[in-house]
């Protein structure tokens, strides 16, 4: 019996490749909102990735003869208060904003996932890890950002640290919940009975069976992380001028809101589009991978 049970736990390994499940892409494409969101997000990611080639102007080049121009044929998104091309700055700014979001999701997801899974596997650690998680949850993301900026000084790395720290406890909880479910399965017991090592049990049996839940959770969190990152940028805790970052650009434009509303509005709109697309895509991923999470 144990060999069969072991197989069921083990066989899942092949399914855990994110797009490995049959027809995931096809099912995603059938959801029109998600397909459109995916398309828009891919476009934005590509533009950000190839920013130096895509941006029409140098994002740092100031031209005081073209200050605060509204959008026109020459400058599609207009120019800012020092005559810099806003489209180019938005493209470079999106790059920084996306990198911050990805660092938050990937590093935070990794640390949080390990914490949650270890808490489940090693019961002795559970109390300690979960208490730490509770304390971390007592600090809302923005507060963590403020605290980190207070310690290390404002900058992109301060925001990145804050986003990681803010992601860890939520992922740890989610991973623990998912791992608890897997721990109760027969194949875990069977694996232990036939003497599979702790490392193999944790990685092959526990982690690989939890990955899709953690992945869905992270895609759902991505939008929120981008919002938090740009809010910290807006508060001046993130990128420092002249570096372009969408939240900070919105904050800079606020001073000229009544003369040239486009300076603040355009970066804000871009954040909105990114987050909206990420949320729609996250919802679609959830429906495909983990319909139980549906609200």
């Amino acid at each position: 019996m144990s060999a069969e049970t072991l197989d069921t736990g083990f066989a899942r390994e092949s399914e855990t490749g994110v797009f490995a499940r049959a027809g995931v892409l096809r099912r995603l494409a059938r959801d029109r909102a998600a397909a459109l969101a995916g398309l828009v997000l891919s476009g934005i990611v590509l533009a950000a990735l190839f920013a130096p080639w895509v941006a029409p102007y140098d994002p740092y080049f100031t031209d005081l003869t073209k200050v605060m121009r509204p959008p026109d044929a020459e400058h599609w998104f207009g120019t800012d208060n020092t005559g810099r091309d806003i489209l180019s700055r938005v493209i470079f700014g999106t790059r920084n904003t996306l990198i911050l979001g990805l660092v938050g999701v990937i590093v935070g997801g990794l640390i949080g996932g390990i914490m949650g899974i270890f808490a489940t596997y090693y019961r002795r650690l559970d109390g300690w890890i979960m208490r730490l998680v509770d304390i971390m949850l007592a600090f809302p993301a923005i507060l963590i950002g403020l605290a980190v900026a207070a310690i290390f000084g404002a900058g992109l790395s301060a925001v990145a640290i804050a986003l990681v720290v803010a992601t860890v406890p939520a992922v740890a909880r989610e991973a623990r919940g998912a791992a608890m479910g897997v721990m109760g399965q027969d194949f875990m017991e069977a694996g232990r009975a036939v003497g599979v090592s702790d490392g193999a049990l944790i990685w092959r049996y526990l982690t690989l069976n939890c990955i899709s839940t953690i992945f869905v959770f992270l895609t759902l969190r991505f939008g929120q992380i981008i919002l938090t990152g740009s809010a910290l940028g807006f508060l001046g805790m993130g990128a420092q001028p002249p570096t372009a970052e969408l939240g900070m650009m919105a904050a800079q434009g606020r001073d000229f809101l009544f003369m040239a509303p486009h300076i603040a509005t355009i970066p804000s709109c871009v954040i909105f589009v990114i987050v909206l697309a990420a949320n729609l895509l996250g919802d679609a991923f959830r429906d495909v991978f983990d319909p139980r999470l549906q609200t």
Binding site: G223, L227, S230, A231, F234, G247, A250, A251, R254, T265, S268, C269, I271, F272, V275, L276, A278, N279
Partner: peptide, 8 residues
């Protein structure tokens, strides 16, 4: 609404 930055 969920996707909109507060400052926007």
């Amino acid at each position: 609404g969920v996707s909109m930055p507060v400052f926007f």
